[in-house]
Design a protein around this nucleic acid. Sequence first.
DNA 1: TGGACTAAAAGTGTATGCACTTTGAAGGCC
DNA 2: GGCCTTCAAAGTGCATACACTTTTAGTCCA
Lengths: 227, 227
Amino acid sequence: MKNLPALSTAKLREGTTVDGMLSILADEIISGEIAPGTKLDARVIAERFSVSRTPVREMFGHLSAMGLVEKRPNRGVTVANITDELLMAMYEAMSELEAACARLCALRMTLEERQALQRSHKDALRLVRDGTTSDYEAFNHDFHTRLYEGSHSPYLRDLALATRSRLKPFRKAQFRMPQRPSLSWQEHDAIVAAIMEGDAEAAARATRSHVMQVSISTQHYVDEHRI
Amino acid sequence: MKNLPALSTAKLREGTTVDGMLSILADEIISGEIAPGTKLDARVIAERFSVSRTPVREMFGHLSAMGLVEKRPNRGVTVANITDELLMAMYEAMSELEAACARLCALRMTLEERQALQRSHKDALRLVRDGTTSDYEAFNHDFHTRLYEGSHSPYLRDLALATRSRLKPFRKAQFRMPQRPSLSWQEHDAIVAAIMEGDAEAAARATRSHVMQVSISTQHYVDEHRI
DNA sequence: TGGACTAAAAGTGTATGCACTTTGAAGGCC
DNA sequence: GGCCTTCAAAGTGCATACACTTTTAGTCCA
């Protein structure tokens, strides 16, 4: 494609080009639409998005950093194989990260943060009874974010956020299990109680077990429904 | 530079070009040779390494992923400011990651792994007395790697390795403190004892405090010597 | 027929040019 | 004089061309 003086598509300039492709490709890889082991041809992808290979290459770098593809010099990139074992390992790491956050929350959260956490948690009881699962899902996201922030440990928070975003696609199923919101709320209750009391180890234990419970739920759902 | 048919420098092809620049630039940023906030001009760097702007752009992506520079669309990249606060936050996260590893070690290490850990630890006592600090440093690196591996949690291990590598440049000073190896060994001793007994929480506590001790030592050294 | 060499095809990495955005400074307007 | 407008210079992002590597297919010889 020639560079015409007045190119119609207003969106040039990175921030849309690369990011747009990135999120689309990432979704397709994670959803399994593109099978693990598939070789990604830069030229084909460039054509598909009507761009040149240069931004595609940049996107490959990002995909590689996200662990979704493997890059080998002069050999192109292939879609990484996210096995069940790796998925479990990611959940396990997530549970440890969140447990560490909760531990620090118990020690460091300000009074305002503690009160806000408790209030939000109590309010959510209404969602468990009356709300849609997607409402509860939004609350749940917010609840865990509070734990990351409450640790007052920016790097730990970033690790938790990064890991959560890598797990995100696999968590979609979680709240489709009928009883999950109610159980989730009860588990949260133990976490909140421990944090309010300043019991660091109890908060860590409760959080670790909560996240592993989520992992198990997801796994069961995946097994039964062959996602 | 024109693309001549027979270019003298044998090393073309990525794997050296980008990686080479990356490690040099990363070192310069971390060592403070390039001040935080400095704007990195792609063209200048390309000239310096006698390459075009394309591989430099790719390297920028890597630097950005490493958190060493900040990228803003159409605004170029600027060297990130690694403040003392962020450094402390990274050590804190490191201590939580290693504590999590140690906890899992206590629960999961095989008999062989436990014995190897203990043996290696006992052998290191000799280094504390007779060896150079650099010998001890090598052992220490190995010791902590055993903890990551012993967790049998690949993703957690990767997080620990990645964080350690980001902290690496700041750890150089650590063992220059005269008594540090001896103290370090004693702290290791508590960790090993807890793992051998299978006491998960004790292993976590001992490891957390050990890593924070390292952090404090480094901080003191940095303060005193204005590294 | 099977193995190894060879050559072409396919595909990756880098150089360069051009379009676009940002930035900063000079000139016009109030 | 201060503020907005305008325009040029600097610098980023993408397209394309080309150099180099890997892979594949074909051919020759045993």
